[in-house]
Simulated assay, not measured.
Amino acid sequence: MATKAAKNIKKLLYTDEFDRQYRFSAEIRWSHWGRAVVIFVLIFTGFYLADPFITPSPVDEPVKFQYALFRFWHMVAGFLLMAITTFRVYLYFFDARSREFEWASMEDTTHITSWIRQIKSYLYLDQFPKKGLYGPLQNASYIGLMLIIVGEVVTGAILYSHVYHNGMGAFFGVIFGPIEAWMGGLANVRNVHYILMWCIIIFIPIHIYMVFWYANRYPGSVEVIFSGNTFRPHRHDDEENN
């Protein structure tokens, strides 16, 4: 019976009979694109701060504070990433409209059979009808990315507290001081910050590739991050059963 249903879905993938389904709230979509822009700014400015590759021509007056300007934009982007990440966590746990289909993904993630079926789907050996927004591999990778971003934000806040000792810097020093001590000092914090950045850099091309791969494998799925709607093959067998 399951094999017959899978064959019906496969046949429908090559027709124009699709149903529109609302999945992503506007808050999720805007936080996704905002986070993407902020991350690219952080990567570019972060590489510059580590090894300045653009140097203005020297002048006698102290007017060209280019390194300070890059550091300023890095900090602005860092605070924006902190705000977006906090907002995204709020949506996941407390906004019913946003969390509905993300929470449904956890059901697949906790079953080994769902992992096997998604892997087989990637190998073109099976179809995988997800219960939520993500399959188990997707859900695990997105949770991992969120943890990496949280780690990047925390280590960035610790680095910030050692440059600015008042206001937010003092607050971060008190809150995250024990984490700095647990990590073995500021040098290790900086190394972890750098390593986590490379984890994000490696994730980005894989994520983009899989988005287009998934859109080709399951037509109508990539639109969800733009409009909030996804398109699934129309199930004629459901109509017949009703």
Score class of each variant (00 low, 15 high):
V163R: 03
P233D: 10
Y90S: 04
I208Y: 06
F226C: 13
E61H: 05
M146Q: 09
T230H: 11
V192G: 04
V222R: 03
R217M: 14
A181R: 13
R190P: 11
E100I: 08
F72T: 08
T155G: 10
A6N: 01
S31V: 09
G132F: 04
Y134P: 02
R71E: 08
K4M: 09
V89G: 09
H236G: 14
V189Q: 10
Y14H: 14
R117P: 08
E107S: 14
P62D: 04
R20F: 05
M82Q: 03
F65Y: 14
R71Y: 12
R35I: 11
T230Q: 15
I43V: 14
G135A: 03
I158N: 11
Q127A: 07
T85H: 11
R20E: 15
G177L: 13
R99G: 01
N166Y: 13
E180F: 07
R217H: 13
E240F: 10
V192H: 03
G228A: 10
V224H: 07
E240K: 15
T3W: 00
G135L: 01
A2I: 08
G167C: 02
G177P: 12
F18S: 02
N8I: 07
G184E: 15
E100A: 12
D237A: 15
F53Q: 03
R190F: 15
I158Y: 09
E107L: 13
H207G: 12
G169N: 00
K120M: 11
I225R: 15
V224L: 06
S98E: 03
W182P: 02
R232D: 14
G132H: 06
A2K: 07
Y209A: 15
I195S: 09
I9Y: 13
S31Y: 04
R23F: 06
W73P: 00
I148K: 07
V76Q: 07
Y160W: 03
E100L: 09
S141C: 02
L125G: 03
F24P: 01
A140Y: 01
F70D: 00
A36N: 06
L137Q: 05
I225M: 15
R232P: 11
L12T: 08
W213R: 14
L12Q: 12
F128E: 01
Y134S: 05
M1W: 05
D237M: 15
F79T: 05
I208R: 01
G169Q: 01
P58M: 12
A6D: 11
V89C: 10
F65N: 15
V37C: 05
L196G: 13
I148T: 14
D19R: 12
S57D: 06
Y142L: 05
D51I: 06
Y14P: 00
F24T: 03
F128A: 00
D237V: 10
R35V: 06
N8H: 07
M183D: 14
T113A: 09
H162A: 03
S57W: 10
I158C: 09
Y122V: 00
N8Y: 04
W30C: 02
